[in-house]
Nucleic acid binder design. Structure first.
Length: 380
DNA sequence: GATCCACGGGAATACACGGATG
DNA sequence: CATCCGTGTATTCCCGTGGATC
């Protein structure tokens, strides 16, 4: 019996709720292969990448736009399709005649959130380009750089690398990123993607979605992920208007609402679930991708923080103590984590007014990320 | 032995308040 | 009255350590 059949059998015997058909279609951190509604930006991107179709390496480029505008969705999908068409099949013998216009590029998509250091950037690219094992420790950054330089210059196909999520709090800065590839630029081109405009490279702007486009995205996701007709048109509209152009927020809210409905054993999404879910997505908050790529212990601290009762949440210190109690971390360390998370915007410190004690006023911590979706995705 | 980097401890500094000081 | 000071907290900053490779 083959694996596919076994999976199907397992699937059929596992009780599924009559609400969700496909969780991955609903996940705000998984991109679909054909993003909706970014046609004109796609055309501009293809224009910029036009040399590719003439067998030349395109110039370096920077794509920027507001959060939830579909930057990652567009670029990851585009790179995946380009890879299908313009990359040599890995591990198969090239049968096309020499000089043909196919298979002359490697396309590498990097998430700077997961490759947040120079070392990891080099490592991820190298790992994508070679079949060999690439060390994760024990070898210096410059060694990896050298290895990458040789690989890039010696390999026949040139390399186009997209580095997504640059210029964030915890990720590499777009400024200076090209210097990391000094000496390789003959055979390697870089597309950086971020929220800020970049001064150095030619840049392309991607605008926020309008309400109509957002509604289409939500509808598409719901049709893939939910039983037909579960999400009503009015609810789609509510979500789309509320999200104000931010697809991340819209999908995080939808996902949250679904988890609430499933937990309540409901076979439909009541409006009150939707409201609860929208309330759990702070406006101008930090995206799930950022929170989920935090180091393990910090994610753990965040998860515990969400479970605390009102008493434990009154100050950073009490929260830290309660969390430390449930983990093997010391109060001091948890405290520092919490402050650091507040520093980077994942949490917000709100100074509390009433305190019977003397001294500086304490503050309580408010999550600045979609809490329901985080809770569900944290178990992975 | 080298390397990366998540962790951990704790010192240093900032702040709020009330009372002392000029 | 304005400013300084002491005390108790809150917050930030720094740097060493150790696990897991290679």
């Amino acid at each position: 019996m083959d694996i596919g059949a076994r999976i199907e059998r397992r699937r059929a015997t596992t009780p599924v709720t009559n609400l969700v058909v496909e969780w991955s279609a609903l996940s705000p951190v998984i991109h679909v292969s054909n993003p909706v509604g970014r046609g004109s930006t796609l055309e501009q991107l293809l224009d910029a990448l036009d040399p590719l179709f003439d067998d030349r390496l395109p110039p370096n480029l920077h794509l920027y736009g507001p959060p939830g505008a579909g930057k990652s969705a567009l670029v990851s999908a585009l790179f995946s399709h380009l890879s299908d068409r313009l990359s040599p099949m890995r591990g198969t013998i090239q049968t096309t005649t020499r000089g043909g216009k196919e298979g002359n590029f490697h396309f590498v998509y990097i998430d700077a959130r997961r490759s947040s250091t120079v070392f990891r950037l080099y490592r991820s690219i190298l790992d994508a380009l070679t079949d060999e094992h690439v060390p994760e420790r024990g070898v210096g950054t410059q060694v990896l750089r050298q290895k990458l330089a040789t690989t890039v210059s010696q390999s026949d196909p040139d390399v186009v690398v997209a580095i997504d999520h640059v210029d964030e709090n915890e990720t590499l800065a777009s400024e200076g990123i090209l210097e990391l590839f000094d000496g390789m630029t003959e055979s390697l081109s870089v597309l950086t993607v971020g929220r800020k405009r970049s001064t150095a490279k030619p840049a392309l702007n991607i605008p926020a979605y309008n309400t109509h486009e957002l509604a289409d995205i939500i509808t598409e996701r719901a049709s893939q992920g939910l039983q037909q007709g579960v999400l009503e048109h009015a609810q789609v509209k509510t979500l789309a208007e509320w999200a104000d152009g931010d697809a991340h927020d819209a999908l995080a809210a939808l996902f949250g609402a679904v988890t609430v409905a499933v937990k309540a054993d409901s076979n439909q999404i009541h409006d009150r679930y939707l409201t609860t879910a929208m309330d759990a997505v702070p406006r101008n908050g930090v995206s799930l991708g950022i929170v989920l790529s935090l180091p393990e212990k910090r994610r753990c601290v965040l998860a515990k923080l969400l479970e605390l009762d009102a008493h434990a949440r009154t100050s950073v210190e009490t929260s830290a103590a309660a969390i430390a109690d449930e983990t093997n971390l010391s109060t001091g360390t948890v405290t520092r984590y919490l402050y650091e998370l507040a520093e980077t915007g994942v949490l917000e410190r709100v100074t509390t007014t009433n305190s019977e004690r003397s001294g500086r006023l304490p503050s309580k911590l408010e999550p600045r990320f979609p809490t329901l979706a985080f809770r569900a995705l944290y178990e992975e």
